[in-house]
Amino acid sequence: MNRLLWLAFAAFSAYAFWAVDLWPGRIWPGLGKLARISAELVPPDAGGQFLTLVFSLLETLGIALAATVMAAVLAFPLGLLGSAKVLPNWLWRWPLRRGMDLSRSIDALLWALLFVNAVGLGPFAGVMALMMVDLSTLAKLFSEAVDHSSPGPVEGVLAAGGNRWEVVRFGILPQVLPAFAAQALYYLESNVRHATILGVVGAGGIGMHLTDQLRVNEWQQVSMTILLILASVTAVDRLSRWARSELERGS
């Protein structure tokens, strides 16, 4: 049985490699060309566009932060509504959760492509696209956190005569807020990564310059742009890790 499984795996892999053109005869010439390109990548040079690049990098960070903030703010009400503790009626909850599943299974870049058509070129389309993906995930995480929150404080608020809103505000929110903030920070990191490429479809940020430079074979500018992307991704990761450790210490 095990041998049969291995055989099937090997056969399917061979078929897949054949179907996607993965064979040495195709790879070698490409590697040669890649080596020639790599030689032209150094030294990185902005070609007098350094300030423009830095500004679009700031725009990229802006897109990521704005999308995270908006997703987090909107995920609150959605997440609460998606939780069995707040909205016991599954008839409401089910379509809400399925809708969130749907918007999560579509990649941010695809959302960006659609939003560019709907609201026009520019960073706003990028913000909306990133928000669509994060909103559903953050809302889901938030509903689950609320579902798994301990019943003690909730009962306490109820016993003290609290109404439904007060149960949420004083019984549930304090329990889930730190975890929620940590998640939002993770999304900030992932959004920065995504935001760097949104420009490829015209949704703002530094990706636009990258595609333009590639189109006209300005290799030194390409490597400069990639370096700037790497530097900003790393910097935001560091910052976010530090903020998360601060959060943990605070809670």
Binding site: V20, L34, V200, T211, L214, I226, I229
Partner: peptide, 21 residues
């Protein structure tokens, strides 16, 4: 750290259009 799409943009130039890139 480099996004897949950036690799794809580069590899399309090196390996040509098609699934290999």
């Amino acid at each position: 750290t480099v996004p897949e799409l950036v690799y794809a943009l580069l590899f399309v130039i090196a390996f040509g259009l098609g699934p290999l890139a």
